[in-house]
Nucleic acid binder design. Structure first.
Lengths: 261, 261
DNA sequence: CCCAAACCATCCATATTGTGGACACTCATC
DNA sequence: GATGAGTGTCCACAATATGGATGGTTTGGG
């Protein structure tokens, strides 16, 4: 993440990390938070934010003063979507999943050693969790989407992640011990789908299924989240079946897409 | 565009301009093109591109070697869309327009003194133009979308643009003389929709209608493009009516949206 | 098959550029 | 009206990004 093999690029890496932090939440972040999260000094952060804003990459919300993603990001995102039309590919599956299960459905992408939540579709069930939303990142192996993806990576890559597990999982390492994760990965490989039994947030369960790219690598994941009682017993198998069905449908769709991400 | 009121931000402005150039075309750009367009030296461009790529903001297409928008842009675009759900708001109108008219339909946004094409919906008519696609920018007052928007700006802003017209319109100034543009703007204000009679590309006509934000400012535009014979006489009035209908529908939808862009 | 042209990648001494400590301001809260 | 938490700005300093120069690779033409 913080590795920058490219020389002479201090500002680029700083700017990128600020953009990522701002992009974690649709409502953006105040300056202090960006200072804290980035580890930079206030003047530096402020100057970078101002220049990013003057370029249209960020905006400052007049009400809250929060820094939010700017119009240029929207534009570029729109162009990037032309190469990879997420909405067309994944949205219908999310709609069906949310509709049929009543839970909230998510589409996440693998990005390096993380998963990032891209799309969300609210379910009808009146109790909903708000841990997961567009922009949220988890280390691979944490949460249902990350587990589903990691389970189907080449074994060497899995072992690499597990070797530096504590550093990789960070705050999540406490609840996600290496042994527990290994067990979850094995279960996932067997069942085809992953189950997160409230490890991220007590009582908040999740299930996920990996989506494979043209080269057969697990690059995305569909997932469902909801409260514990709705993810047990027979219903768990039902949800798993639905997830895998839709994941397979998307994987197939992707065979027809030109550019990979 | 090139104005940078913020101090200590050279790299930020350079990076932003590179991203914008790459984002002009979904298929990206080769290094030379970026060097030419940005006016920077090759080593500098190369270094910035490499660092942007290592941050995931860009990617280098393995086939063509072209630099293209990277996964992080897709992610951030997705988050930005949560604040401003373009697809939900504008896509249905584009579908209807393309369906009912057979021409290709576009949704553009105003960004400073430019319009940027955000969404495209292909029509069924077998002759199609490829001048306009996601990411393409025109100076305000050029092409149908830019004319529709400019016509409804406060008079002072219009005069400001016209004052520096040659510099503003650049390559388009030849075909778009100040007198002609003034006339087009007047016609647009009267009819409610704009007509571009092949000024950008001979034989390729366009029509546009402005979409207004919460504060009543023209911030977006719907437009149609196609070949000359299909944009004349009674049909022109029909297309104008359809465009204005859909533009009005979107303007109304936007009243309900929280965050402006 | 060889040569030229066009494009891409990298090195490193230089000074231009970005940095951050210190100071000033604004707005809640007590 | 005093305290504190957050935001915005200045400027001397040096770390950082710069770009001329060099070498490598691919494409196409003779």
């Amino acid at each position: 993440m913080t590795s920058t093999p490219v020389q002479g690029a201090q500002v680029v890496s700083r700017v990128a990390s600020l953009l990522r932090i701002v992009g974690r939440k649709p409502e953006g972040s105040p300056l202090v938070e960006l200072v804290r999260e980035s580890g930079l000094t206030r003047p530096t952060v402020h100057r970078l934010l101002s220049s990013l804003a003057s370029e249209g990459l960020l905006d400052q919300d007049p009400q809250s003063g929060n820094w939010v993603l700017g119009p240029e990001i929207l534009l570029m995102g729109s162009v990037a979507s032309a190469r990879f039309p997420l909405e067309d590919i994944a949205r219908p599956s999310l709609r069906r999943l949310a509709e049929e299960t009543g839970e909230s459905a998510f589409f996440s992408i693998r990005r390096g050693a993380e998963t990032v939540c891209l799309l969300r579709e609210e379910g009808s069930f009146p109790v909903r969790s708000f841990v997961l939303h567009e922009g949220v990142r988890f280390p691979l192996g944490v949460a249902s989407a990350g587990t589903a993806i990691m389970a189907f990576l080449p074994e060497a890559e899995q072992e690499e992640l597990l070797a530096g597990w504590a550093a990789h999982a960070r705050d999540f390492a406490a609840a996600h011990t290496e042994a527990l994760v290994r067990e979850n990965l094995a279960k996932t490989r067997q069942a085809g789908y992953s189950v997160n039994p409230g490890l991220v947030l007590e009582g908040s369960w999740g299930m996920g299924a990996a989506v494979f790219d043209q080269r057969g690598r697990p690059a995305w994941a569909l997932s469902l989240t909801g409260i514990e009682p709705r993810f047990k017993g027979e219903r768990q198998e039902l949800l798993g079946r639905l997830l895998m069905e839709e994941a397979h449908r998307i994987s197939t769709l992707l065979q027809g897409t030109a550019g990979a991400v």
